[in-house]
């Protein structure tokens, strides 16, 4: 009976998402909007979304009925930095892909984690540059065939969720598009915390990656993701070597510390006293 009011459509402009049929991003959108709804937000008035370039950067822009800033490739986090520093009262959420955040924008990602900038970064990791046609990414598994590694990928991929921990994130988790319930729960947790929060979602990309890996349907790809996932607890037990080619899922860190906003505004208040004395 509450179907209308509880619908997540109220968070959307009502335009059709342009993603391929069977794309993993639909699940991420759905999980995010349901998390926001369950937290009791009636609209996105207290949110600003920033994104870069790539399929997942189109999640908020312009489809969310919200303020959304669709920036250059890799520059979503700097723009989010400027927004958050001047409007600390707003929830600043960055959506991006693995190319955007682990490739061209990695420097900003690391520094935002180091500063403990108060933003939530949701990274869809499809292990490929999807929008440009399936080129190798910094997250592509070793040996994988892509359009620019036709004989197999000769590089090792980044472990983004661990990278965030090393750089100083106060919250880091990884789920997959085969774990949408857990993802929703994690988004709710992350939205309730301060500091630099990172959620990586390993996402199936049937068009860009699946066809090269013999995963012909979206369902086959999701099944592959699910079958290769192991919990972080289990991963710690079996050790690094046996984790190879596995997708480690779960919460990597939840460890609050003073945030950039807390620190910079504390300093500003002190400096303002000096300003008044002059």
């Amino acid at each position: 009976m509450m179907a209308e009011k509880s619908s997540i459509k109220k968070y959307l402009r009502g335009m059709k998402f342009p993603f391929c049929a069977g794309c993993g991003l639909f699940g991420i959108v759905d999980s995010f909007l349901r998390a926001v709804q369950e937290l009791g937000y009636k609209n996105f008035k207290k949110f600003v979304f920033c994104s870069g370039i790539g399929c997942s950067s189109w999640i908020p822009s312009p489809f969310f009925l919200a303020d959304s800033i669709h920036t250059l490739h890799g520059r979503s986090i700097p723009v989010a930095t400027g927004i958050k520093l001047r409007r600390p009262d707003l929830n600043v959420v960055v959506f991006g892909g693995d190319g955007d955040l682990m490739g061209i924008g990695l420097g900003h990602f690391m520094h935002a984690a180091r500063r403990n900038l108060d933003i939530l970064v949701v990274m869809s990791n499809n292990m490929i540059y999807g929008m440009t046609g399936g080129q190798v990414a910094p997250t592509t598994p070793f040996g994988a065939i892509t359009t620019t590694t036709p004989y197999g990928n000769f590089e090792q991929p980044f472990d983004a969720a661990s990278l965030a921990v090393a750089a100083g994130a106060t919250f880091s988790a990884r789920w997959t598009t085969a774990h949408l319930k857990e993802l929703k729960k994690t988004i709710k947790i992350a939205l309730g915390l301060n500091g630099f929060r990172f959620i990586e979602v390993v996402s199936h990309c049937p068009t860009g990656f699946g066809r090269k890996r013999g995963l012909k349907t979206p369902q086959e790809f999701v099944d592959w993701v699910r079958d290769n996932a192991i919990s972080i607890g289990e991963a710690r037990k079996i050790g690094k070597n046996k984790q190879k080619n596995k997708i480690v899922i779960g919460e990597f860190i939840r460890k609050p510390r003073l945030t950039l906003i807390e620190n910079i505004y504390a300093i500003t208040r002190e400096a303002q006293k000096l300003g008044k004395e002059n």
Partner: peptide
């Protein structure tokens, strides 16, 4: 002080939208 000039101009663009 940002990590590079790409970030510097990105941050001022974000702040301008506030």
């Amino acid at each position: 002080q940002m990590e590079d000039e790409l970030a510097s101009i990105g941050a001022i663009i974000g702040a301008s939208w506030t």
